[in-house]
Nucleic acid binder design. Sequence first.
DNA 1: TTGTAGGCGTTATCAT
DNA 2: ATGATAACGCCTACAA
Lengths: 352, 352
Amino acid sequence: MPSEQPPASQEPASQEPTAQATIVDVALRAGVSVATVSRALRNYPNVASATRDRVLQAAGELSYVADTNASRLASGRSNTIGVLAPILTSWYTGEVIAGVEEVLRDAELDLLISTRGLVDRRDAFEVASAFRQRVDGMILVDAYFHDEGARMNRAGIPTVVVGEHMAAVPSLSIDDRLGGEMATRHLLELGHRRVGLIGGLITPDVVSAVLDRRLAGFHAALAAGRLRRDRSLIAEGNFTIEGGRRAARQLLANDNPPTAIFCLSDEMAFGAIQAARELGLSIPRDLSLIGFDDHPVAEAIGLSTIRQPVRDMGRVAARLVADIIDGHEPVSRHLPQAIALVARSSTAAPSR
Amino acid sequence: MPSEQPPASQEPASQEPTAQATIVDVALRAGVSVATVSRALRNYPNVASATRDRVLQAAGELSYVADTNASRLASGRSNTIGVLAPILTSWYTGEVIAGVEEVLRDAELDLLISTRGLVDRRDAFEVASAFRQRVDGMILVDAYFHDEGARMNRAGIPTVVVGEHMAAVPSLSIDDRLGGEMATRHLLELGHRRVGLIGGLITPDVVSAVLDRRLAGFHAALAAGRLRRDRSLIAEGNFTIEGGRRAARQLLANDNPPTAIFCLSDEMAFGAIQAARELGLSIPRDLSLIGFDDHPVAEAIGLSTIRQPVRDMGRVAARLVADIIDGHEPVSRHLPQAIALVARSSTAAPSR
DNA sequence: TTGTAGGCGTTATCAT
DNA sequence: ATGATAACGCCTACAA
């Protein structure tokens, strides 16, 4: 029951709101100052509840939303977390981001994403420095950026690294060496004596600790099984399906080809499966294959693998930065993540 | 060779820059006004090149970067494109985002990402309205948000939809009906007479035009082959691997099971492959399978499919919004995308 | 070509 | 509990 017609200026005839209402509009309508509006809307304790109600109502009627940029400029907080990753299209990166997004959504934080090739590390610096002023915290996927991680932290922007264990930066990662060992041991226990490995240096000049550690585990398991290292049983797979395919063809073209191959990622294993099919080899009869990750497709096609909780890692990383931003010092600098061997139908005893 | 010690205030002893330089600092150092700095840094034409050089140098020395929020507040532009998608972890969404990111990186635009379940369409409204003031343009993945798309456009925020053909909003999509027909016809031409379909309504109350169209193509092909519709040959797969698996088990438990199945996404086909393996069925001997998408794993495991250029669609969408923002009216409201049948080893003539 | 100064919409400090 | 008002850092007429 409209007791009085409001001033004409208040409600324009057209359906579409001509311009966004500002805090002044709300203040006017609620009959309070802008400061009070600001406080009421952000649930400050020192606001009379009657006042708060009036403000809320006015804001609702005007469908007012505080301008992000103005608020960020004034408060110095961006309410945004940045994610920097080498590539977006790997399953790994996708899962991390999904986990992060899940948490940020609940925390009402924005998610800003950027990619930078592994090659251009210099680029990464620029991105990070551009990020510096528009994020309150950062998550670095993989460690290609770890220099930046330390730098960002020193610059006061909480940054955590996912996928590498680092001294200078809070990080969460699995025990890659153990993973390499578990996978290899599984093959040895099945009776394999010639075990190949498909790894993946993206570029010659990028040294990845992850690969080194998995490789170290591989070698450790071989040594424990009294097997000698054989360089001809190792090939680069570039962490892609196609790379895995090429690497597998290379290994299988060997005079004395492996009876089992450990692929450092499931995606490379998919490529190896393709290669086997093309060569008319049957899995696991002619060739055993084990991957790394537990990609959902691995379960579908029965690929044995080492499972790591990637989505979880994204979640945990997001909570960690959010907490640090809120002033809680991280309980520990490093959060180790559990892995598990998942034996499926792609691994079996060798037939010869 | 340090000829002179610079004034102490200029270079603090500590390594880390205490605070970000502002435009005033640059102006002071270059001996010009802030307005000139602003112009020089943004490559305005009306700046003497000597002046510009001095400004650039000063900015470089101070490693100055304009504050994003301040500049956005003042200019009213966010230089950000928002992407809203139902889920982040599907291959499809990942590819779209990767394509978008590629273009935005070159265009120096930020990428803001948000997800909203298909179920909470109301939520989508809120997100979109929250996005309104922090993006210059939007890309909607799938059409669950198409109402919002129209609304955003009316509100002056250029918005395009990827994956659905829409009247009210610029969009790019494939001919889903044709795709459904091509896949089905392929199976019929191989001689199959009992063809199943695994589709995927995410929730009962979401009506997806994509599914409807592919289904229509399926039915059209059946009719052309003089085959009758059979509701018992259609199952929901939820667009996930696990959903595909369940749906396949359901179809194959039929009294008179299909000899071929058309899956509306490759991921559902992966699940169907799993189901077949679990049931001891060999592909393609006992069961032919065709998917939709051309997921990279499809090639690896030899899955026949309908290929669509998803990454490209992301690229095109991003260029489209960027262009519209720059004032270029879109050449056309809808950009059709090409698809192709890719026949691999998962489809063959029925053995019975 | 360059400088001056008034916004942009909030937040936060200091009174009251 | 509430109100003025000065930042926040940049952009952009308008002047010179």
